[in-house]
Computed example of a mutant assay.
Amino acid sequence: MRNQVDIAVMIGSGVPKGMREAGQKACWVVLVNGEQRGTAFSTRAEAQECQSAWLAQLSANPVAMRLQA
């Protein structure tokens, strides 16, 4: 099985309460094999950094992620 690392945007009520209270209307999250990993990010660039880190980790040790599932 190949691991998939995606970025999803959350809008409106999907945005965590603290971010909404600060005026944020959208946020980005990283999904690993369809499951959110980590926190919500204020910018897409931050989420892309996290995505890159996940991809590097998974390419270094692809079996570890499958064992966690």
Rank of each mutant, 00 (worst) to 15 (best):
G23D: 10
G14F: 01
W28N: 01
G18F: 02
W28E: 11
A8Q: 14
K25Q: 13
N33P: 04
P16K: 06
L31T: 13
G18M: 02
A8I: 12
N33G: 08
E35I: 03
S13I: 12
A22H: 08
G34K: 07
G18N: 05
W28T: 01
S13E: 14
M19K: 09
E21G: 07
V30Q: 12
P16V: 03
G34C: 06
M10F: 05
G34R: 08
E21K: 15
G14W: 00
W28V: 02
N33R: 09
C27F: 03
R20H: 00
W28G: 02
A8N: 08
A26H: 12
A8G: 08
S13M: 08
G18K: 07
A22T: 04
E21L: 15
V29A: 12
N33W: 02
E35R: 11
V9W: 06
V9L: 09
S13Q: 11
D6T: 13
P16I: 02
G12R: 03
V9I: 15
R20Q: 07
G18V: 03
R20P: 03
G14M: 04
A8L: 07
G18S: 01
K17T: 08
C27D: 08
N33S: 13
A8M: 12
M19Y: 05
V30S: 13
V5H: 06
V29Q: 10
I7R: 11
R20D: 00
E35A: 10
K25L: 11
R20G: 00
I7P: 09
G18P: 06
N33F: 03
V15L: 04
D6Q: 15
I11T: 15
Q4I: 15
Q24G: 00
P16L: 06
E35Q: 09
C27L: 04
V5P: 00
G18D: 05
G12L: 07
G34Y: 12
M19R: 09
G34Q: 11
D6R: 13
P16M: 05
D6W: 11
P16A: 06
M19D: 07
M10P: 00
M19V: 07
G34T: 14
E35C: 06
